[in-house]
Amino acid sequence: MDLRTVNKRRFKAEYAWGYLFIMPTIIGLVILNIYPLFDTLVLSLYKKQGLVGMKYVGLENYVKLFGDSLTWQSTLNTFLYVIYTVPIGIFLSLILATMLNNKIRFKSLFRGIYFLPIVVAPAAVTLVWKWIFNSEFGILNQFLNLLGIKGPVWISTPGVTLIAAAIIGIWSNIGYDLVMILAGLQSIPGTLYEAADIDGVNAWQRFFYITIPQISPVLFFVTVMRTMNSLKQFDTIYLLVDRSNPAFRSTQTLMVQFYIEAFQKYNQGYGAAIAAWMFVIIMLITVIQFIGEKKLVHYT
């Protein structure tokens, strides 16, 4: 056997193994993701007929979707939720991580405590906070009463409920961002700071000109994660308000609207249209974020 044949055989074997190893995943992705992507788009062109039928209606679902003020309200709510949770959440995590990144004791303990909300289910967490936010008997308003402030009816005042949901969202996710940012902070080479000290740089300048750029990849990552999670937030909003709640319209996000239409009212065509709309929004935001990455993130 000459070398060429041996090599050919080896390559063929390698190809075979390669395909074999990736086959389950690829087949899975095709069935679970590629096909569904097209199926959703096709479905969005159909409308429920009676109890079990589907009828082709072209773009009618989209016309209805964008003509319904509820859709725009949901979209607005979704954006508001992101705006409430992402900047404040990351800001707080950044501060906490910076604080932790000092020569203090009990670092692991603190880290463990802040990370705790991450491991427990959002469903359970939301129920606990629902109780805390209860306007007459919840501990938050009772506490505010002590300070002489009359707390709002958190869960059924339009506008306020979304803020309550945001508070829950921030509380639940600080730990994750904190851990990430802390890891980023800890990987900044000390030499950079030493060089800065020699140059007589003050603390603010250290922070803005060294620390932030050094951890900008982590900050970017955390921002993307947080934004994506907030856009797709379902559990908290769904459990906080139901249809008979006066604050429902001002709190419902696109994800909740999607679920209600597709799986409670069983309008799968209309639900698919909502999913498509969410897809467009998320893609747009992703593009914006990547443009931001190019401009603001400093990779060493």
Partner: peptide, 12 residues
Amino acid sequence: IPAQIFIIPQYR
């Protein structure tokens, strides 16, 4: 791709 796109067809 955001997961919502996949949910309805997976369910079906």
